[in-house]
């Protein structure tokens, strides 16, 4: 059944690999696309970048960080259980072309999501350099998968415990100073990383694409929750993206919109924990309208 959990394993602290049964999504998925998951019947619709798929096995893979109530619920689900809803693949696939030398930089969940991009750019005949960032050496994951398909894997860590000291941006700058040339750059991961990395490639005139992680509701262009300003025009990340020109994205607005629900996200998280601890109960008025 679509949505059944095959695997939900913590690969490094606070990052899980989620493998779901989803034969139809696995058949149709393309690099750069995403899925929407609702963990349980009172849950919200949360987008996750696809990190891999296997059409023969009928499975898809995504990586996620426990960051709020939805991912907390998801992190507790066991193989064999099913998520309440699973939709996909959504979003425009990444435009895969032969550019020459391609840089793919990833961090956070992007260490997972970068794999299909690296693979596709490689298959299209590019020389692909994968830049994998983490705050420290032991939070780097998915490296062996990326190594299978990249021409070169470069690790960077904020604390310098492994590879280049710094983030994707610093690693890119270090490589550029060595005289390395890139014809295209693609960044996926946390918004700050995508922003500063895009700003770093701009002076070099390298075409740069980012896979944005906007908040979404339906994911089909119906609501406009995920709107982003790109080159002064309002676009919907769910159907016009998630990939956009990293040099044209209005980053201040991206940050602002991502923070729109922080108080509610905190409240929902605390509320769930309190309810589990037995210190609050749903009010009786509410009970009557519950499903």
């Amino acid at each position: 059944m679509a949505g059944r959990i095959i695997e939900n394993e913590e690969v490094v602290p606070n990052v899980r690999r989620l493998v779901l049964e989803a034969p139809q999504i696995a058949r149709r998925a393309r690099p750069g696309q995403f899925i929407i998951v609702i963990p349980d019947e009172v849950g919200e619709r949360v987008p996750f970048s696809l990190a891999d798929w296997d059409a023969d096995a009928g499975t898809i893979t995504a990586f996620y960080l426990e960051a709020g109530v939805s991912t907390l619920k998801l992190s507790r689900m066991q193989p064999g259980e099913s998520v309440h809803a699973l939709v996909g693949p959504l979003g425009r696939p990444t435009v895969i072309k032969k550019y020459g030398t391609v840089l793919v930089g990833g961090g956070c969940y992007g260490l997972g999501a970068m794999y299909p991009l690296v693979r596709a750019f490689k298959e299209a005949g590019n020389r692909v350099v994968a830049l994998m960032e983490g705050r420290t050496s032991y939070v780097i994951y998915n490296e062996e998968k990326v190594r299978e398909v990249a021409d070169e894997v470069i690790i960077c860590t904020a604390d310098g415990s492994r590879g280049i000291r710094g983030h994707v941006k610093e690693a890119f700058e270090a490589l550029s100073e060595e005289g390395r040339k890139f014809d295209y750059a693609h960044f996926v991961g946390c918004t700050y990383m995508m922003m500063i990395s895009s700003k770093a490639t701009e002076p070099y005139g390298i075409p740069t694409v980012v896979s944005l992680n906007a908040l979404m509701v339906d994911g089909t262009g119906m609501c406009g929750c995920c709107r982003v300003l790109v080159g002064g025009e309002t676009r919907f990340a769910c159907v016009d993206g998630p990939d956009f020109d990293g040099h044209k994205v209005d980053w201040d607005q991206v940050f602002s919109r991502l923070a729109a629900y922080v108080p509610q996200e905190n409240l929902a998280y605390q509320y769930l924990k309190c309810r589990e601890a037995g210190s609050v109960r749903a009010s009786p008025v509410r009970e009557e309208v519950r499903p």
């Binding site: 009172v42 849950g43 919200e44 619709r45 629900y261 509610q264 509320y271």
Partner: peptide
Amino acid sequence: LLKAYLFPDYDCP
């Protein structure tokens, strides 16, 4: 659809 009027019993704010 997402019953935000029942937040935080429902997760969508």
